[in-house]
Simulated assay, not measured.
Amino acid sequence: MHAEKLLTERDHVLVAFDGPVAELRATTPLAERLRTMLGEAPLPRKVARTDDPFVVLAYAATIGPATEQAVYAQFCRLEAEAVAAAPLAPGVGKAFTHLAAAGTHITVIGSLAASAIRTFLVMHGLDAPVRHLAGRTGPDQASLPPAPDLITAAIHAQAVPAQSCLFVGSTNDDVTAARTAGLDAIRYHRPVVSPDADVPAEQNRSWFEALETGPVAARPPRF
């Protein structure tokens, strides 16, 4: 089945933020920038060498709540900078408008701070077709994909059954989270940029063309 038809036949479509909506680019490792806030005392080897900002955040919490809050606030600021500089996925604006016009409810889900995701959607005019969003609300990594928490929370907030939803994601963690939550999932593959530089990416291809047409079967719901 064509991806466009597959999505418009569902009442609700949940879309991962990173990949299908925003093309986040690699920046200076956030963990490295956060470590500068931990003072000059020697750090544990794991913290000193990690590229995972959540490891740094967890260590900051052991120093004290004030340090944890300061480091997390900086993490959110750096994250917001990266999101603000990210371009839209090719064709996503037209695709979302089309889905909304067909009566499909769209929810955007991401591991980033909810405020950063909301700002990006508003900046690019996607806040109208997107009915709901679910993002990180604190420094705890346990609720982020591959855990299904964000997805189950979004479903519960709208009081919809998992069977009426379809998830679109580009990473293994996102797809795993959706399947664990009981949703069918299809994978988004970032399209190769056309060599025709005179044609804007948004007009050069359909967002639906970047989706696999065969859904990934869902696991039994956990709620």
Rank of each mutant, 00 (worst) to 15 (best):
L57P: 07
E209S: 13
L121H: 08
A134V: 12
E9Y: 12
A162N: 10
A177Y: 00
R190S: 11
L7K: 02
E209I: 06
M123H: 13
A114N: 01
T67I: 09
E4F: 06
D51Y: 14
I186F: 01
K94L: 13
H156R: 11
S115V: 07
V193F: 14
H98V: 15
E4S: 13
R131I: 15
P90D: 09
L183R: 00
H12T: 11
R187G: 02
P161D: 08
P220H: 15
A218F: 03
L211G: 01
M123Y: 09
G169V: 00
L133H: 15
M123L: 11
S143C: 12
P20T: 15
R77M: 04
A70R: 13
P145R: 01
D196P: 08
T104V: 11
A85E: 14
N172R: 06
T119P: 03
P20I: 14
L126T: 06
S115K: 05
L7Q: 03
A95M: 06
A73Y: 03
S164L: 09
V216M: 13
G19M: 06
V83T: 02
L34K: 02
G110T: 00
P161M: 04
R10P: 10
A48C: 14
T67W: 07
A86M: 05
L34F: 07
G214C: 13
F54Y: 15
A102R: 09
V192F: 10
D127I: 12
T171H: 07
D149S: 08
V55Y: 05
L38T: 07
A157C: 07
C76V: 10
F120D: 02
G169F: 00
A162F: 03
T152M: 03
I151L: 11
A70K: 15
E209C: 06
H98G: 06
R219E: 10
F75G: 00
P65M: 02
V92T: 05
A58S: 12
L38F: 10
D174Y: 00
V192Q: 13
C76D: 01
A134W: 01
I63K: 09
Q158F: 06
P146Q: 01
F208E: 08
A3L: 06
A147V: 00
A197W: 12
Y72W: 07
P195F: 10
A84I: 11
D52Y: 14
V199K: 11
D174S: 13
P215A: 12
F17W: 04
H12E: 09
V168C: 03
T97L: 10
H105F: 10
I151V: 14
A162P: 06
I155T: 12
A177S: 08
S143W: 00
C165L: 15
T27V: 11
A177M: 04
D127H: 14
A153R: 04
G138T: 01
L211K: 04
A178V: 06
A26D: 15
V160T: 06
G169C: 02
Q203D: 15
G39A: 13
A217Y: 09
V199D: 15
P221V: 11
G19R: 02
C165M: 11
L150F: 02
D11P: 06
T28F: 12
A116L: 04
A66E: 13
V168E: 00
T176W: 00
V13M: 05
G214S: 11
T213W: 13
G103P: 10
Y59Q: 04
F223V: 05
G103H: 12
V47N: 07
A22H: 11
P87Q: 09
R10D: 05
G125M: 08
Q74H: 14
A31P: 15
A80H: 03
A114Q: 07
V216F: 08
